[in-house]
Amino acid sequence: MNAFKDAGHIFRLAAVFVCGILVFVGVRAVLVPKSFGQYGHYRGDALAEIAARPVNFAGHQACEDCHSDVLDKKKAGKHVHVNCEACHGAQAKHAEDPASVQPAKLDTAVLCVRCHEANIAKPKSFPQVASADHSSGLPCDTCHQPHSPAIDTGETAQATTPATTKVAPGGTK
């Protein structure tokens, strides 16, 4: 009995701790987001929030729905596998409202060299030119039509090395 009385203050402190723990458990129940743990140790709602972001690149299917004529032109040339937005940039806004949002006109002098300027680190089979020597300053579309770049009249081998006949996308045949 006496031992209990003399340890009374310890029990008081224990009571304070227990109260603290109870408050913590209560607060925790209120504050943990509802969807937490739905799929794993994270907020399940986060998935939908991340997925809800609007797209900027429309995707080539959207382009080809309207611009099938360009697709036909591309099919004839080496750029057939180059998606529209690789050159024209993100066009989701244009796809949503084709009338009022117009894609900017492209400058081939800037655009083509992004891929085709010669660089020793590029794959040997990829068509490359030293632009300064190749066109003596003329814009590329003086001779090449970007959607089907081979020059109609001449030989394909004229401007590029013989090994450049195919851009060869896809490892499978």
């Binding site: 998606n83 690789a86 990829f126 851009v167």
Partner: peptide
């Protein structure tokens, strides 16, 4: 159902 922006814009696949 779309592909990623980087894949969409990669000219060589």
């Amino acid at each position: 159902g779309l592909t990623t922006a980087c894949c969409e814009s990669c000219p060589t696949g």
